[in-house]
Design a binder for these strands. Structure first.
Lengths: 234, 234
DNA sequence: TCACGTACTGACTACCAGTCGTTAAATAAT
DNA sequence: ATTATTTAACGACTGGTAGTCAGTACGTGA
């Protein structure tokens, strides 16, 4: 009898429905201003029902955040699987992160919460664990691509993959934060394009990591991409 | 008659007393878990009195944050005024930011709030303005030192000071966030020292900005510092 | 038809930011 | 010296929210 299975599916569906409602409300109002009552209303459920599926408002918030993490993971994986040389694919991932930021800004913003552990008092250990795993999955894509570049002699042998990864992340993330907060100010008052700045930063980091061979491969791949784009335009 | 002046001083003193109490409570509990009642108790005042001096809990929090900003400003200014070559002083400021992080961790953590504009709904425009000014003061120190380095031909002419500054900031800040959140994990599980990583990142950025002359000056200044330290130890 | 378990709920509690009418004390005016 | 006025402070209150819990409705299996 498939009753247990059906019930399992239905339960899973409820979890998703609640997540949909929560995503909408959190997106519109942010964590602090969103209320569980409002989420419940959108989900067409009583507030107390939400607590049967998620242990706290913060847990629910993180569950939505992890949806965003899944998107990022997919985009990074795609960027790391183009068949281009590894150095170019490392670069691609910076661009993919930027695309993620532009396409899924609200998910990006949710990471503010994840990164501030002072706010995690209401987060269940289980959810913390899930987040840590999702996090590792994402780092994994970046690290393994950098490792490839080292193995192929395109990055210097003394580059430490996870260390390089956190440097790229730090540069990208910091710049995107500025974009998120006051892109207009940088553009108008300071005449600085932050997207370009981010690319410049990644470039400087890569320059310091690549071998001579890596630099050649990278330049070739960039030119190749340029040519392909021009072809597509005709 | 100095009555008005005395009252003015007393009022200012109250503001400081409240700030002291708030700093203690915020430091121990963070923004969310701290309550205005508790701050009032520490300040030996009624809760409603706090609202005569600060418009909201968030305003009070930012006022404490700005105290921290003042410390950072002083430390950066000191690092930028050692009489060493400008390139070395740019480097110093990264080290100073790190020292600030280690010495005033609780202030550093308060910036999480400042950087998340989603949480600013209760912040008064006046306080926002004050924060923006304090922010600019800090950027100013960094930018002008980088400008010196360019003028002296130690950084390449095509370096844009404010752009370089935001790159350094981004690298430092991102790494410190990781240190703050899970330094132990990086150290033990991944065998990565994040302070070194931060320095390495700054170094890569500088390498990409310095002229040949700048590299020589920088190396000389670093050796000089090393020698001085060895002397001090004897 | 009845007993049981499950999913769900509305009413409730505890708590907290922020407000308001009042009080007490210091200062100014008479 | 006495009264009026301004100022600083406060306690009691409001509105709103996260999270709880006793109870209900309904599908399932006997």
């Amino acid at each position: 009898m498939g009753i247990t299975e059906r019930k399992e599916r239905e339960k899973e569906q409820r979890r998703e429905d609640i997540l949909d409602a929560a995503e909408r409300v959190f997106r519109d109002k942010g964590l602090a201003a969103a209320t569980m009552d409002e989420i419940a209303e959108h989900a067409e459920l009583g507030k107390s029902t939400l607590y049967l599926y998620y242990k706290s408002k913060e847990d629910l918030y993180l569950a939505v955040t992890m949806r965003g993490g899944e998107h990022l993971y997919e985009m990074l994986k795609a960027a790391a699987s183009t068949g281009e040389p590894s150095v170019k694919r490392v670069w691609n991932m910076g661009e993919a992160y930027l695309a993620y930021f532009n396409q899924y800004r609200h998910y990006f913003q949710m990471y503010y919460f994840l990164e501030n552990s002072q706010l995690h008092s209401q987060v269940s250990p289980e959810m913390s664990e899930l987040c840590a795993l999702a996090d590792q999955k994402i780092w994994g894509v970046v690290v393994s691509t950098i490792q490839e570049a080292i193995d192929e002699g395109l990055f210097e042998k003394d580059v430490v993959p996870i260390q390089a990864a956190v440097m790229f992340w730090s540069n990208c993330n910091g710049l995107m934060r500025q974009m998120d907060r006051q892109d207009a100010y940088w553009e108008k008052a300071l005449n600085i394009n932050l997207e370009e700045t981010m690319q410049k930063g990644n470039m400087l980091l890569m320059e310091g990591m690549m071998t001579q061979k890596g630099r050649l491969e990278f330049e070739k791949a960039m030119n190749q991409q340029q040519t392909n784009r021009e072809k597509e335009e005709t």
